[in-house]
C-alpha cells in the first residue's frame, strides 16, 4: 500500500517539474517494455548508466561482456571498450585473441579502486564504452560507495556522451538510466552449446527505464 503522503508529494513534484523525470516505470507492466535488446549492435544508450543485475548465480553476466566485445570494432589504434574489473576476475583464456584485442583491461582489487578508475577513464572521455564489473563484491562492500560518486560519474558520462555498463549483484546505482534484470539461468548441460547460442538465450527485463537524451 503506497504511502499517501509520499504519493501526494510525488504528485506535487510532477506538477512543478513536469520534465524532470520521464518514463519512470513503477509498475510491473510498464517495466517490461520491449525496446531493449541485448543482441543489437549497440544496445546501451550513450550519455547514461546502464545497470545490469543478475537474478541467478549463473545468469550469464560474462556473456553480456562477451556480447559487447563481439560488437566492438577491431580496427582502432586503441580499444574503444574498457573493462574495469572490480576484483580481477576477467579470464582472457575464455575469449579469443581477436576479442581480447578490442578490450582495455583494468585489474582492480577494491570497490574504491574500481570507482576511482571509472571516474578517471570517464572524465578522460576517449573511450565511448566502459564496463564496470562490481559483481564480485558483497553488498556491504558496495554499500560503502557514496551515492555522490555515482552522480559524479553520471555527469562525466553526460559530458562526454559515453556509456557505462555496470554489472552489480543488486540494484545499486541511484541515477542509472536503465536497470536490466538478467533473468536467464544456465545449467551445466548448456556448457556444450556454442557461445552465440548462449548469447541468444540471454534474457533481460528492464526494471527501470528513464528517457534518455540521445
Amino acid at each position: 500500500m503506497p504511502n499517501p503522503t509520499l504519493a501526494k508529494l510525488q504528485q506535487q513534484l510532477r506538477e512543478k517539474f513536469p520534465t524532470a523525470r520521464h518514463g519512470l516505470s513503477p509498475t510491473a507492466s510498464d517495466a517490461r517494455r520491449p525496446d531493449f535488446d541485448l543482441r543489437n549492435p549497440d544496445p546501451f544508450p550513450r550519455g547514461g548508466i546502464t545497470e545490469i543485475v543478475p537474478t541467478h548465480p549463473a545468469a550469464g553476466l560474462s556473456l553480456v561482456v562477451a556480447s559487447i566485445m563481439a560488437h566492438e570494432s577491431a580496427h582502432t589504434p586503441v580499444p574503444e571498450l574498457a573493462l574495469i574489473d572490480g576484483r580481477d576476475q576477467f579470464d582472457p583464456a575464455s575469449f579469443s585473441a581477436e576479442d581480447c584485442s578490442k578490450l582495455l583491461w583494468l585489474r582492480c582489487q577494491t570497490p574504491e579502486q574500481a570507482i576511482r578508475a571509472a571516474d578517471l577513464i570517464l572524465r578522460d572521455g576517449n573511450l565511448p564504452r566502459v564496463v564496470l564489473d562490481l559483481f564480485a563484491f558483497s553488498s556491504s562492500e558496495l554499500g560503502k560507495i557514496p551515492n555522490s560518486s555515482w552522480h559524479r560519474i553520471k555527469q562525466s558520462i553526460e559530458l562526454n556522451n559515453s556509456s557505462l555498463i555496470a554489472l552489480t549483484p543488486r540494484a545499486l546505482i541511484p541515477c542509472a538510466l536503465i536497470r536490466l534484470s538478467l533473468s536467464s539461468h544456465f545449467a551445466l548441460d548448456q556448457l556444450s552449446s556454442t557461445r552465440p547460442e548462449l548469447i541468444e538465450q540471454l534474457q533481460t527485463i528492464p526494471v527501470l527505464l528513464r528517457k534518455c537524451a540521445q
Binding site: 549463473a58 550469464g60 553476466l61 560474462s62 556473456l63 561482456v65 562477451a66 577491431a74 589504434p77 586503441v78 580481477d88 576476475q89 576477467f90 579470464d91 583464456a93 575464455s94 575469449f95 579469443s96 585473441a97 581477436e98 584485442s101 582495455l104 559483481f135 564480485a136 544456465f186 548448456q190 556448457l191 556444450s192 552449446s193 556454442t194 557461445r195 547460442e197 548462449l198
Partner: peptide, 26 residues
Amino acid sequence: PASGGTTVTRAGRTFMAAPLPLRRFR
C-alpha cells in the same frame, strides 16, 4: 601496453575454453 602502437596478435590462439566465460578466482 594500453597506449596503442603495439601490434596485437589477433589469430594467435587456436582454441577457446567453455562457451560460458569463466570468472577466475585470483
